[in-house]
């Protein structure tokens, strides 16, 4: 038996065939694995999204299913370049004129030009909106999830995805520091537009020792998000 096997192993046909069989087994294993886990992964991700939605929305703000009440707002390049409708010029006259257009062009995680907004309602009346914003950080895009009430005031901000330097930039995570809580209650006019940046740039938000780019990017993402909400309030709140 072993002798025949040894003889077989030297045959080119056997080698190709065995490689093919292994690849087929691997493909089958992956297909089965994917089928077995697909549903559970979907559920876990939905649960993740629901729990992060709850984090940026104070208890009692909503009695509807946010995941079922969404609106997709398109932010095409033409729209992004145009001045926002309600967030008028005084928010754009800050020290970084290029900021707005650049930030808005990137709106939406993954570079898509649409933003999915989850709408919170209480007894049918809109109370708040939750959406994601992305901004280029030190290493890669930082994605923040932000809750905004109908008046444009921030209810909560959480960083949901980032690749910042561990131990330095990762203080933007709520699990590691309370830094993101500084956004709670802020709005476009409070602090004034010029102060909507880190302290190093003359703003009101703390930076971390050794990491300025990361908090700067988060502040920028949140500001862009508020401007997005102000510009599309009519579409979102209804």
């Amino acid at each position: 038996m072993n002798a025949t096997l040894a003889g077989l192993r030297d045959r080119l046909v056997y080698q190709g065939f065995s490689l093919g069989v292994v690849a087929m087994i691997a493909a089958a294993a992956l297909a089965i694995g994917n089928r077995l886990t697909h549903e559970a992964i979907g559920q876990a991700e939905t649960a993740d999204l629901a729990s992060s939605l709850r984090q940026v929305l104070p208890a009692g703000m909503a009695d509807n299913d946010l995941l079922a009440d969404t609106v997709t707002v398109g932010v095409g390049p033409s729209q992004a370049d145009a001045p926002p409708v309600t967030a008028s010029g005084d928010f754009m006259g800050g020290s970084e004129p290029g900021l707005r257009a650049r930030g808005a062009n990137k709106v939406g995680a993954g570079g898509t030009a649409t933003v999915t907004v989850y709408r919170a309602r209480k007894a049918g009346v809109p109370t708040a909106a939750v959406f994601r914003m992305a901004e280029r950080g030190y290493a890669a895009d930082i994605v923040v999830l932000m809750g905004v009430d109908v008046e444009g005031r921030l209810l909560g901000v959480r960083v949901v995805k980032h690749a910042e330097t561990p131990g330095l930039g990762d203080k933007i995570e709520i699990a590691k520091a309370k830094w993101v809580l500084a956004f709670d209650g802020k709005s476009l006019g409070d602090p004034p537009a010029a102060k909507w940046t880190v302290k190093k740039d003359g703003g009101v938000f703390d930076q971390f020792a050794g990491a300025t780019i990361t908090p700067r990017a988060v502040v920028k993402a949140v500001k862009t998000g508020l401007e997005f909400f102000a510009a599309h309030r009519e579409e979102i709140v209804k």
Binding site: A29, L30, G33, N34, L36, T37, A40, I41, A44, A47, D48
Partner: peptide, 12 residues
């Protein structure tokens, strides 16, 4: 890949 899928599904 299987470990990755299994962890993601059952030990999220």
């Amino acid at each position: 890949t299987l470990v990755d899928l299994a962890l993601n599904a059952w030990l999220h």
